[in-house]
Amino acid sequence: MIVADQFRPGTFVDAFRFIGDHGSLLLSKTGEHLELSFAALGIGLVLALPLGLWLGHRHRGFFFAASVSNVGRALPSLVLIGFGLTIFGVGFWNNTAALVVLAIPPILTNAYFAIDGIDRDVVEAARGMGLSERQVLWQVELPLGLPLVIAGIRIATIFVIATATIAAVAGGGGLGEIIVNQASYGLAGVVGASFCVSALTLLAALGLGLLRRALSPSPVPEA
């Protein structure tokens, strides 16, 4: 699978030439890559975000939230993908399931600690003003906790896009298919496809970082 290709200083130039020459191939592989990543992130968000927010709102499940993030980090993606193969067989869902498991811990843990850590006085004041529990969560806690919540989503996104590469080992398609197939695409292709994955990851990280900054509550100017 790995060929010790002769490395030349020109490899990086070749990599860019590869990107230029194989635009449509890379575009379709990038499409697959994003499809897989977004499916996993979407399912992960639906599963983890409400649970994390609710637990944080009730100030319950500290141990649960902390353990989920610990165990989640300990789970090797290769193991997840291998395990998924035994259940779902080769294909899209096997890899999606593995990536969902990878996406859940940072989203859930950050959502929990974002809401749990909000100044209790502020929450009490909102209750005293007659806000319902739902309103407290939506109008007070969520806006205040949003930066940390988005930080969690950002970590999950970086994880998922970078790891979706490994899905190629289990027939998952995406840019990883070029990266694990040096025999067909050459080192230039491998490097070129890696540039694409890195660029996708950096773009996603940058985008969500900007979103986080834009949604952060601005500090009240001191009188």
């Binding site: 790995i2 970078a162 790891t163 590469t165 490994i166 990266i179 040096q182 890696s194 990280a205």
Partner: peptide, 9 residues
Amino acid sequence: TIPSLALFQ
């Protein structure tokens, strides 16, 4: 952000 598979290669 470099994929581990790619970095190895």
